[in-house]
């Protein structure tokens, strides 16, 4: 079981080695290799269906790979105890809030279930995290009464409560208005500064990616095409990558590739 979160805790490094995953009819990951450093904000971009969510699910142990390895601080996540020792959190693409609980209970769930704090302290932490994501005072609401973007922000608050060493965001700014998107981006940066958390951010949002990333990986059809700093991505010559990061709405010449 997880122990109480010390206030300052360094992030962990993540290595993915030759990860393969096939679902019944199609391959989702085809030999993914990645090295993510401690405390880094690592952004993964790529077209829809390229395997980004599947990759994140492997990292947090929700899927078992067909082949390959995931190392956290050099230790395989298969080896016993690693998943219990390292505090991880994931912000799901859909939010994945528990519908039978209130917003406040959702955010405080981790602390309550692991008996890490007293109910009064939990209430305080929940209020603080909700305020952080701009949802002050919504503790009593039910998730069904929230908009998509609000759910996403509650999910982020829920992840922050864990004080994770590794946090995985699956499209944290989709469904958010530009202002909330900026808030989320700032929060991702702040978290890195405050607790040196390692962050993996899957996103289509170019502003978010180039705004927060230390490095960016491009993934397509379950394969990593390229890893580099935001500048390197912007100046990369590969036409696919260029098309992806510069795609713009063009009425006279609609694109139908990519």
């Amino acid at each position: 079981m997880n122990t109480a979160a010390p206030a300052t805790q360094n992030g962990v490094s993540v290595s993915v080695r030759g990860l393969w995953k096939r679902f019944a009819d199609q391959p989702a990951l085809q030999g993914v290799d990645l090295e993510v450093n401690r405390g880094e904000i690592f952004v993964i971009m790529g077209p829809s269906g390229s395997g980004k969510s599947v990759l994140l699910r492997h990292l947090i142990g929700l899927e078992q790979p067909d082949a390959g390895q995931i190392l956290i601080d050099g230790q395989s996540i298969q080896s016993p105890g690693v998943m219990d020792r390292v505090r991880m959190a994931m912000v799901f693409q859909s939010g994945a809030l528990l519908n039978s609980l209130s917003v406040g209970e959702n955010v405080g769930l981790y602390l309550a279930e692991h008996h890490l704090k007293t109910p009064a302290e939990i209430a305080r932490v929940v209020a603080e995290k909700l305020e952080l994501v701009g949802l002050k005072g919504l503790e009593e609401r039910s998730p069904a009464e929230l908009s998509g973007g609000m759910k996403k922000r509650v999910a982020i608050a829920r992840a922050l409560v864990i004080e994770p060493q590794l946090i995985l965001y699956d499209e944290p700014t989709s469904e958010l208005d530009p202002l909330s998107a900026v808030t989320v981006a700032e929060e991702i940066m702040k978290l890195k500064r405050r607790i040196q958390v390692t962050s993996l951010v899957v996103t289509h949002d170019r502003d978010l990616a180039f705004g927060v990333a230390d490095r960016i990986a491009m993934i397509r059809d379950g394969k990593i095409l390229f890893v580099g700093t935001p500048e390197a991505v912007q100046h990369h010559s590969d036409p696919l990558i260029q098309k992806f990061i510069t795609a713009e709405f063009n009425q006279t010449n609609p694109r139908n590739d990519l």
Binding site: R57, L62, M88, F92, L98, N99, L109, Y110, H114
Partner: peptide, 20 residues
């Protein structure tokens, strides 16, 4: 129905990621 919808809507995955 309740557990099934939690499974389908990834709520159970979310529990797992919280080590619950």
């Amino acid at each position: 129905a309740e557990i099934g919808s939690m499974q389908v809507y990834q709520e159970i995955d979310a529990l797992r990621t919280m080590n619950i």
